[in-house]
């Protein structure tokens, strides 16, 4: 297995992605409609996490602005869908990705001249500005009410796969989930190749040793900008999928809190890895279950104010603990366990 992987890396990645996709789609047939929609949400978020993971793990830049790029992707999809109701969703996805990436470029031009803390602060400022901007530019964004679009219509052939009394409900819940899984698979496949490309290796060098990177002919600023743009494009794509899944977009969704959550999920999963992004997405899917578990164990009344804010506390504490005790996240912990078992 491992020798195949080394000899045909690109084919291996394609096969691995397809296998995972088939597995996930098969799983969606088994799971309940509720779990399907959770899975879909997780897959959408994992796209954004992957983009952030690439930015932080591979180019060493921190961004607190990815929720902002998600918002841009989400609004682009909603506005496009409302004007071109009949166009295939592929166009929404592509458009959101491209505009997400372009807005990333606009922010990157000054941002990538900045080093660590300056950059993080600049994206923080962007993050804080998103919600008020969306509230103010009512003409585009529908103000505080947000925008609504029609849910994805399930094609007849897909509906035909289901039978029984709740066939329609199951088909309608599962179709968006499977579409999301396909989109995520494409995004992951592209990123897997990017990780192992010349660009990926150059990016690692930029992160670890700027001087060596410059000496070997890498243009630092261009490399950083590229990393930032790709990350923003992934966020735009993720935001687009979120809109397609939920059928709406509201300004409050994409504030600083979401940026912090994205960072948390990425760190929990494992910075700079594909599996870490998948794990992060899964944690997002079941975060409510996790929080209610903490609720149950600690005996906190979920309707109290503390219960209402428990999510922020749980994820904040998890973020701090992971960073201090296991900075490589679940993926790192898994690798450590495997090594320990082998000994």
């Amino acid at each position: 297995m491992s020798s195949l992987r080394q000899r045909f890396p690109s084919a291996w990645r394609l096969v691995a992605t397809l296998l995972l996709l088939v597995l996930a789609v098969a799983l969606s047939f088994v799971l309940s409609p509720l779990d399907d929609s959770k899975l879909a949400g997780g897959a959408a978020i994992s796209i954004v996490i992957l983009g952030l993971s690439w930015l932080i793990g591979w180019s060493g830049q921190v961004s607190l602005g990815n929720a902002g790029f998600m918002a841009i992707g989400a609004y682009v999809t909603a506005i496009w869908a409302n004007h071109h109701a009949t166009s295939p969703i592929v166009w929404s996805l592509v458009l959101s990705t491209v505009i997400g990436g372009l807005s990333g470029l606009v922010l990157a031009l000054p941002a990538t001249r900045l080093r660590g803390p300056y950059l993080a602060g600049m994206t923080l400022a962007f993050s804080f500005a998103v919600t008020p901007l969306a509230l103010n530019w009512r003409g585009f964004t529908g103000g505080s009410g947000g925008l609504f679009i029609n849910f994805l219509s399930t094609p007849a052939w897909f509906g035909g796969l289901f039978s029984g009394p709740d066939a329609l409900i199951r088909a309608n819940a599962q179709w968006p989930a499977d579409v999301t899984l396909v989109v995520a698979a494409v995004a992951f496949y592209f990123m897997a190749n990017l990780f192992h490309s010349r660009v990926g290796r150059a990016m690692r060098l930029v992160r670890d040793n700027e001087v060596a990177a410059e000496l070997s002919g890498v243009n630092l600023q261009r490399a950083r900008t590229l990393a930032f743009v790709i990350s923003a494009a992934y966020a735009g794509l993720g935001g687009s999928v979120m809109t397609l899944l939920s059928g709406s977009v509201t300004p409050q969704t994409y504030g600083l809190t979401l940026s912090i959550l994205l960072l948390t999920l990425m760190v929990l999963g494992g910075i700079g890895t594909l599996s870490g992004a998948i794990l992060g997405g899964l944690i997002y899917s079941y975060s409510d279950n996790l929080v209610s578990l903490v609720n149950k164990v600690s005996g906190i009344n979920p309707t109290s104010t503390l219960g209402a804010n428990l999510k922020g506390i749980v994820f904040g504490v998890l973020l701090i603990l992971t960073m201090m005790l296991a900075p490589r996240g679940l993926v790192g912990a898994g690798a450590w366990l495997r090594r320990a078992a082998r000994r």
């Binding site: 804010n309 922020g312 904040g316 973020l319 701090i320």
Partner: peptide, 17 residues
Amino acid sequence: IVVMIGFLGVLEAIIAS
């Protein structure tokens, strides 16, 4: 940076609760 962002989340939630 990441740890202090986590602390920001915790503090805001605690204050709010």
